[in-house]
Structure formats: structure tokens, C-alpha cells
């Protein structure tokens, strides 16, 4: 009902525009200038809360963060507000630190391994759920649960499951004759443990996005391929994967950016330890600023700014790739 009435009014307004009124509509964009500026002020008014919000609650904290990184902020300087200017010495300190190499390697391993597994498992599940079967909707919804749980809940559950003496994972391993693994307390396995938990956390996100991407692939393609006798495997490699490329690119990029900034999971499970065994850049930043009794904000802010730069570089690369992809 409403849509039809709306349609008529819409058409009616077009009719009057063609009449004696304000002349032809399409090329007359410039004629609407006076109304245009008024409209712009209205638009600005509606956007004003957001602009103010971004300035006060985004730009200002980020600016403070830059300021932190180029000064020597001790706790005392924090309270008194008279830190010494340090230039880029805090950055030099970070780059020269013994933890830097470890943190970079761990960050790379953590993000790349997490994403590879999240994506491939997510894609396999998305393909599996594509063929509608009984209960598929319900099961797909249940797969979202890990993603919706507070990170502290899932991380502490994993920490307990991977506990050396009482954890379920070790008791299964021992039941099959294996040896107890000190998942969270041995430097050899701590990073693996947090990666496992993080893969589990990321699967739902990948599944949902890739599943939505699969819905866009016209089913006729698969029908035609089946008629031509293409196997399921061939269909996957020659239809699903190529057509899913744009969606895959977004999924991987978002996954990269989220994984880069993960703190909670690692902090709750291992606090980056033992030693630096599971220390990533984000966790290092958190540890310097808030994790020890002696907060050291300046290097922490420097590491944080480094993380922003990395994320931005990948963001720009993504935008460029997307633009090139859009042109072709």
C-alpha cells in the first residue's frame, strides 16, 4: 500500500518539475546552488555530533598518544605534567630493545598462522553450509557463539582447558599415551597455544562473511558446471574461489587488522610469557603501559604508534588493490 502511494507522489513531483516550475531537473544541478548551501549546512548540523565526537574522543587521545611517545613520561611526570621532551629516543629505545625482534616475529607468526587457518576453515565451513540441509540455519547460528562471547570468557576457558595438570587437552593426550604438554608455561608452546585459541575465535567471523559471499554466486553457474560434468573439486577451484576473490580480500584484510591488535586473548592466557615467548607488539605495548607495577607510557605509546602505521600501510595497499580490481 504505502509503496504504491509513494511511487505516485514521486512521479507527480517529477511531472511538476518538467512543467512551468523550476525547469528541467537533470542538468540543473548548478541552479540549485542556493538551496544546496542551505542543505549543506543542514547536513553539517546532522554530522556535527560525529565530527565533535571524532575530534574529542579519537583525534585528541591519538594526539596525546603521539605526545606520550616523544616525551619521557614517568609516573611522576604524568601527575605533574612536566615531562621532558625526548624526540625520537623512545622509538630508538623500542627498536633497539632485545624484545623488539621477538615481538615482531611473534606478531608475524600470530597474525599469519591465525589468518591462514581461520580463513581456510571458515571457507570450508561456508562451502559445507552452502548446500542447505536440515538444521543448517540453526547450526550456522550456533557457530557464531565463540565470536559473541566476551574475550575474557573464551580466553580463560581455553587457559583452563590447556592447563598443564588439570586441563582436558592434556588428559586426552595422556589417555592416548602422550606426554603432558605445558601449553601455557613452556616457551616452546605458549605461542602455539594462544594461536590455537585465536583461530577458534576467528572462525565464526570468516564463516559468516564468506558464507554471505557465497550467496552472491549465481547458482546457475554450479548447475551449468554440473551439467558439464565438473567435479565438486573443480567447481570449487574454478567457480567458488575466483568469484569469491573480492570477499576473500576484505575478509583477509579485516582479519589481519583485528589480529594485529589482539591483546586480550594473549594477555589473559599467558601475559605474553613465559619470558617473551608469546609477546606480540600489541601485548608488549599493553605490558609496558599497564601490565607491570611500573608503568612506562612513552615506549608503550611508541609501539602503539608503530602498530597504527602497520595497519594503515595495509589499509592503503588494500584500497589500491580494490581500486585496481574495481577498474578491471
Amino acid at each position: 500500500m504505502t509503496t504504491t502511494s509513494v511511487d505516485t507522489t514521486g512521479r507527480a513531483s517529477h511531472g511538476s518539475a518538467a512543467g512551468p516550475g523550476p525547469a528541467a531537473p537533470a542538468p540543473g544541478a548548478r541552479r540549485r546552488q542556493p538551496r544546496g548551501t542551505a542543505r549543506q549546512w543542514t547536513a553539517f548540523g546532522f554530522a556535527a555530533p560525529l565530527i565533535a565526537y571524532l575530534l574529542v574522543f579519537y583525534a585528541y587521545p591519538l594526539w596525546r598518544n603521539v605526545e606520550l611517545s616523544v616525551h619521557d613520561y614517568t609516573v611522576r611526570a604524568f601527575v605533574q605534567g612536566d615531562p621532558e621532551f625526548a624526540g625520537f629516543s623512545k622509538y630508538a629505545e623500542v627498536f633497539g630493545s632485545g624484545s623488539f625482534g621477538t615481538a615482531v616475529v611473534n606478531t608475524a607468526l600470530f597474525t599469519v598462522v591465525s589468518i591462514v587457518f581461520q580463513y581456510s576453515i571458515g571457507l570450508a565451513l561456508a562451502v559445507f553450509f552452502r548446500g542447505n540441509f536440515r538444521l543448517s540455519g540453526v547450526l550456522r547460528a550456533l557457530f557464531l557463539v565463540p565470536w559473541l562471547l566476551p574475550l575474557i570468557v573464551s580466553s580463560s576457558t581455553w587457559a583452563w582447558m590447556l592447563n598443564s595438570e588439570n586441563g582436558i587437552v592434556n588428559s586426552v593426550i595422556e589417555a592416548f599415551g602422550g606426554e603432558q604438554i605445558n601449553w601455557l608455561t613452556s616457551p616452546d608452546t605458549a605461542l602455539i597455544a594462544v594461536i590455537i585459541a585465536n583461530i577458534w575465535l576467528g572462525i565464526p567471523f570468516n564463516l559468516v562473511i564468506l558464507y554471505a559471499g557465497l550467496q552472491q554466486v549465481p547458482p546457475e553457474l554450479y548447475e551449468a558446471a554440473s551439467l558439464d560434468g565438473a567435479s565438486a573439486r573443480a567447481q570449487f577451484w574454478h567457480i567458488t574461489l575466483p568469484l569469491l576473490r573480492p570477499v576473500s580480500a576484505i575478509t583477509l584484510l579485516l582479519g589481519f587488522i583485528y589480529t594485529l591488535k589482539v591483546v586480550d586473548v594473549i594477555w589473559i592466557m599467558t601475559t605474553g610469557g613465559p619470558g617473551n615467548a608469546s609477546l606480540t607488539l600489541a601485548v608488549w605495548s599493553y605490558r609496558e603501559a599497564f601490565g607491570t607495577g611500573q608503568p612506562d607510557f612513552s615506549p608503550a605509546a611508541a609501539i602503539g604508534n608503530l602498530l597504527i602505521v602497520i595497519a594503515l600501510v595495509f589499509g592503503f595497499v588494500h584500497l589500491r588493490v580494490q581500486r585496481i580490481g574495481g577498474r578491471s
Partner: peptide, 8 residues
Amino acid sequence: PAVVMAMG
């Protein structure tokens, strides 16, 4: 990253 915002 949230940790950066947290410091700011």
C-alpha cells in the same frame, strides 16, 4: 588498536 586508545 584499542591499546593505543586506552593509553590516550
